[in-house]
């Protein structure tokens, strides 16, 4: 029997909610007993995905962003969804330093950060329909060495 838990939040695509989103996800995650580093990794990744939805998905118009989190044993999954303009070329969008908004001083590091801080990052997107970023991270990797005796 797997230990599972889920939560969902939905909020306006206002930049003030970026802080709320990452703190909400981080506090849901605490039941996995993560390290400070693991929490910081997830917070950064969530912040990047939510910022993308706000600036690129909705281009600063106010609509809804939703986040779904799932815990399955020690695997933490977080999905950030918007119903915005979508991404035409996902591969290009995920390339480090690529940005469609260089004039706004966007660094183009959003997806690179998500990939660096999470174990897997999957992007589903359709132009005009929206984008879903699904990220996974195994929490407490390597910690079992200390708590169990393996053969």
């Amino acid at each position: 029997m797997k230990n599972t838990n889920e939560m969902e939040i939905r909020f306006d695509s206002k930049s003030v909610n970026e802080g709320f989103a990452r703190v909400a996800v981080a506090s849901f995650m605490t039941q996995l007993n993560p390290t400070v580093e693991e929490v910081a990794d997830v917070k950064t990744a969530v912040s990047e995905a939510v910022t993308n939805s706000i600036i690129h998905g909705y281009e600063n118009e106010i609509h809804k962003v939703s986040i779904r989190c799932r815990i399955e044993d020690n695997v933490f999954t977080v999905e950030v969804c918007d119903k915005g303009r979508g991404i035409e070329n996902i591969e290009e969008a995920m390339r480090p330093m690529f940005t469609t908004k260089p004039e706004q001083d966007r660094s183009g590091m959003g997806f690179a950060f998500m990939e660096a801080f999470m174990d897997t990052v999957e992007v589903e997107s359709e132009p005009g329909k929206g984008t879903k970023v699904k990220m996974k991270k195994t929490v407490g990797k390597g910690r079992e060495i200390w708590t169990t005796q393996s053969l």
């Binding site: 990452r22 910081a40 917070k43 950064t44 912040s47 990047e48 910022t51 706004q104 001083d105 966007r106 660094s107 183009g108 590091m109 959003g110 690179a112 950060f113």
Partner: peptide, 13 residues
């Protein structure tokens, strides 16, 4: 104690 890629944008800019 927290910075994401938007902060990098500030520095790079």
């Amino acid at each position: 104690d927290f910075m994401d890629s938007s902060g990098i944008g500030v520095i790079m800019g």
